[in-house]
């Protein structure tokens, strides 16, 4: 009991309660529709693309940085993959040839994402730029590259195999969901169980002390932003497959959303603290909420409103000022 109570005091514990409450609330408001198999699967297809972006933002936030270029990276990689699929492979291609081209385009996209991340990492590590500015600028460049190579229009006409990534199922589990689960586990593993992960958290807690403790700071930063870039590229591939096209300005609202999810998930924007499980819980709460609101015929715009309110609410609850206010009340 004690441990349960103490768990509730952590940001993740509170978030778990919120996720369950939202689920129960939505399920009781319209049980037949919210709990329907169709709704549950459609949710599972929807959230992975921005949830993976949130993972990308999370790893950079752990170092006390941020990656504002994730959407740019995601679109740039997707556009290149789309060009390969549409122009080299062509829409008529089927069978093993199509699968091969799909795999190749994925590898290329992820490599481009990682390279873009390497560029960000180099700006932060070697030039010494603040991550907000470095990724703000590079994000514009990546988006710009996507615009320049497509002329601003959508790329489409893929082999049908390409749709599997975003719309397929394995044992009736949506592929995007599997992908997200694998990536979330991988990121959690990296953060908790590898030297790199522990170093990145320590660096986030105190960059100067990390340098004095002979942590290879520059390599660390390069790797973090590469990881973020690669994750963003995977998210871009999902969007491309689901939309059956790629465009320079897809998913522009996802940037705010992914930062929102990371912070909602308890990741400290100043670095040094954050758990993947928190981010997953935040994603689930957001998805339950928005899908439930959808059932209730609430507009997309109201969803945005509720997300914002939720974010501010959670930050207020986690903030020390508010905790101090309540402590003072209780004492007097």
């Amino acid at each position: 009991m004690n441990t349960l109570l103490s768990r509730l005091k952590t940001p993740e514990g509170r978030l778990a309660v919120i996720a369950v409450l939202v689920f129960v609330l939505m399920a009781s408001l319209s049980p037949e529709r919210f709990l329907s198999a169709a709704n549950l699967t459609s949710m599972a297809f929807q959230f992975p693309e921005f949830a993976i972006l949130a993972l990308a933002v999370t790893v950079t936030m752990l170092t006390g940085g941020i990656d504002l270029s994730v959407v740019g990276v995601s679109n740039m990689s997707a556009v290149v993959a789309a060009l390969i699929l549409a122009n080299v492979a062509g829409p008529e291609l089927a069978g093993s040839g199509a699968v091969m081209w799909l795999l190749l385009s994925m590898v290329v996209a992820i490599a481009i994402g990682a390279a873009a991340g390497l560029f960000n990492g180099a700006l932060v590590a070697f030039i010494g730029m603040p991550p907000i500015l470095a990724t703000l600028g590079s994000g514009l460049i990546f988006t710009g590259i996507a615009v320049a190579i497509t002329g601003g229009s959508a790329v489409m006409g893929f082999p049908t195999a390409a749709a599997w990534l975003g719309n397929g199922k394995v044992f009736s589990v949506p592929v995007p969901l599997i992908l997200f689960a694998v990536l979330a586990l991988a990121v959690a593993f990296i953060v908790r169980r590898t030297a790199f992960g522990l170093k990145l958290v320590m660096f986030g807690a105190n960059p100067l002390a990390a340098r004095f403790a002979a942590v290879d700071v520059n390599r660390l930063l390069l790797k973090v932003y590469m990881l973020s870039g690669a994750l963003a590229a995977i998210s871009g591939l999902l969007v491309m497959s689901r939309a059956n096209s790629a465009k320079a300005d897809y998913g522009s609202s996802y940037l705010l959303l992914s930062i929102l999810i990371a912070v909602l998930g308890g990741v400290n924007p100043y670095g040094g603290y954050g758990k993947v499980v928190g981010v997953v819980l935040a994603v689930l709460s957001m998805q339950f909420l928005s899908s439930g609101l959808n059932m209730l015929q609430v507009s997309n715009f109201a969803r945005e409103l509720i997300w914002g309110v939720l974010l501010i609410f959670v930050m207020l609850v986690n903030s020390q000022q508010v905790a101090a206010l309540f402590a003072r009340r209780r004492m007097s």
Partner: peptide, 9 residues
């Protein structure tokens, strides 16, 4: 405090 330790870790 600033160079040696990760105070909150």
């Amino acid at each position: 405090l600033t160079e040696g330790l990760f105070l909150d870790q």
